[in-house]
Design a protein around this nucleic acid. Structure first.
Lengths: 340, 340
DNA sequence: CTGAAAGCGCTTACAG
DNA sequence: CTGAAAGCGCTTACAG
């Protein structure tokens, strides 16, 4: 494989000129630039990664730490992984994948061997064991997700509270005054998750602010679990005309099946909004209104913030991504209003 | 960060001795080894990855190319990715993730910059654009999946034909003589997939060998699609008592729902086997007999074969992983037999 | 069993 | 605008 000396010889310049021409770190005469470009093409030259890492101060590699928890939704994780890789490539960065087995060990290893310039953390839990390591290592890092203590950390996430308010306000605008929230499994509120309780609390607060009735129920992702959650909400809100789902994907399909059997028409008798979902809600019958979990944007911002830290200008902060409401066919004014 | 010179100084030896002690490439006196080990611990020394890559002949990094097709099942892809990463780590290899946007470009890039020692390819299609690049690059590579032309390639995959034969033989052993195969979408048989037609053909051949009746139908992963497939199979096999599923995950749930509504009891009136599934079939009602897609084993073998190629001893070949049948509760002798 | 030294292929002050 | 050279931190013949 051709090296920089070959390129310099063919172009008739010194290797430092080749290096500078390629990096753009100092002005090079146009004629020289052209000759170098030709030599590069002719030889199919590509700088040696190891030499670059050793001589330079960059490796152009990010570590992506993506553990799987019990409640990790693999397609969601996958879509975050892909968006991080894609975003990283647009900055000429490659991505090294670290998994659960090596959560903290792997981070220490790749950092202390100077393999990576920065770290992107997925699937952050409230008390994540990786966070102490991050603080200790001091390498540019972006978390996708928000732990309890964000001191000194750079974090990106959907604005879950904003998403809850958005869901409520859209339903209120349609005329709904009694809205239930079908939540995740109870365990998620007691441990690990930051977004689940954040969403729930903002939902209840938004309802109270709007002067409407709300109720919340956790949901086990089985058919009996969904029925129990639905019945529990109805018990609290006999006049419930709308449902916000902030829950497991499987619950969506089960819920629609239950409603069909009970002959509860969606959206005529019950409006439904799926909030913070990583999957498409288009294939449901009816296609479901959704406030998506923005994996593309999260990945992109995470990478951008890491790049800024590497460049040296970036203060640690939490960045929330604004929620977006996608109108499909699962919401309508409440039946009473229609009748009126 | 401490470097090899620091370690040598603290241990009172030369840097070459440190290097050899760490690599084990030449015998070192026990006493010396101990002093070096102590120095390494004391200084928290970890060899610089870039220097290693430059000086040595290895980077200890694999490229993992994992594109997403329309029919890619994300959880399955994720489980293969994780198994490759885990297996790679057991050989002290890290994994660089390449995605669709960079299928061939990315491979050329990481290889020509000497960033990786080998390549693992996931989600291989019959006429995969990456294969020509692989042949051209000549770097140790293992494909998980089997393309049309395997000349000169190292491939690992489940023995799909064996899996089809296994499914049939287990059902025949229970007494079934009329078995339907609910397949993937038609597109998968016309294009791209190698495993779908391989499974279908072996299924039909196994049925014929066993002297029983079989039928095959493609399946669209919607409720009407599943009903059409089921009805199509029944039309061909009025006495059908067993069904083999080699299809999309979603079809499983829909099928069980359809059967429930039609009051076809599983397994009493119809036995079902899920073949080559990457997902758990335990949560279905009843838990479904399954021949799993062995992502763990595929990933491990793929890595092992790549490691062997890097070490220089490995002839290109196709390696098939033996199918395993997991008995759950969705099969039984056919009703007629029970009655008899 | 161990050491001194060349060399891997770059980047980047230093110099002009 | 360009070049000669030091140096990054290892590995591995070469030598003893």
């Amino acid at each position: 494989m051709a090296n920089i000396t070959d390129v310099a010889r063919v172009a008739g310049v010194s290797i430092s000129t080749v290096s500078y021409a390629l990096s753009g770190k100092r002005p090079i005469a146009d004629a020289t630039k052209t000759r170098i470009a030709q030599a590069v093409t002719e030889l199919g030259y590509r700088p040696n990664a190891g030499a670059r890492m050793l001589a330079g101060s960059r490796t152009n590699i990010f570590a992506l730490t993506a553990p799987m928890h019990e409640d990790t939704h693999p397609p969601a994780l996958m879509s975050f992984v892909l968006s991080v890789v894609t975003a990283a490539r647009s900055y000429d960065y490659d991505v090294l994948l670290l998994t659960e087995g090596e959560a903290t060990t792997g981070l220490r290893r790749v950092v202390s061997s100077s393999l990576v310039d920065g770290i992107i953390m997925l699937d952050v839990t409230v008390e994540d064991e990786r966070i102490d390591v991050i603080r200790e290592l001091g390498l540019p890092t972006t978390l996708i997700g928000i732990p309890h203590d964000t001191e000194g950390l750079t974090c990106v996430d959907l604005d879950f509270e904003g998403a809850a308010r958005l869901a409520v306000s859209r339903l209120v605008a349609l005329g709904h005054t009694s809205i239930g929230l079908m939540g995740h499994a109870e365990a998620l509120y007691e441990r690990g998750s930051n977004y689940a309780p954040r969403f729930r609390d903002a939902f209840l607060a938004a309802g109270s602010d709007a002067g409407i009735q709300t109720a919340f129920h956790t949901t086990v992702a089985t058919r009996p679990g969904v029925e129990e959650s639905l019945d529990g909400l109805r018990a609290q809100l006999p006049g419930m005309t709308a449902l916000v789902l902030n829950c497991n994907e499987n619950i969506h399909g089960i819920l629609l099946e239950v409603l069909r059997e009970r002959e509860v028409a969606v959206p005529e008798a019950l409006s439904i909004v799926s909030a913070c979902s990583s999957f498409s809600t288009d294939h449901f019958l009816p296609p479901m209104d959704v406030i998506p979990l923005p994996s593309q944007e999260s990945g992109r911002r995470a990478v951008e913030l890491a790049i800024q830290q590497i460049a040296g200008f970036a203060d640690p902060h939490v960045e929330l991504i604004a929620p977006v409401y996608h109108r499909k066919s699962s919401t309508a004014p409440p039946a009473a209003t229609v009748a009126a």
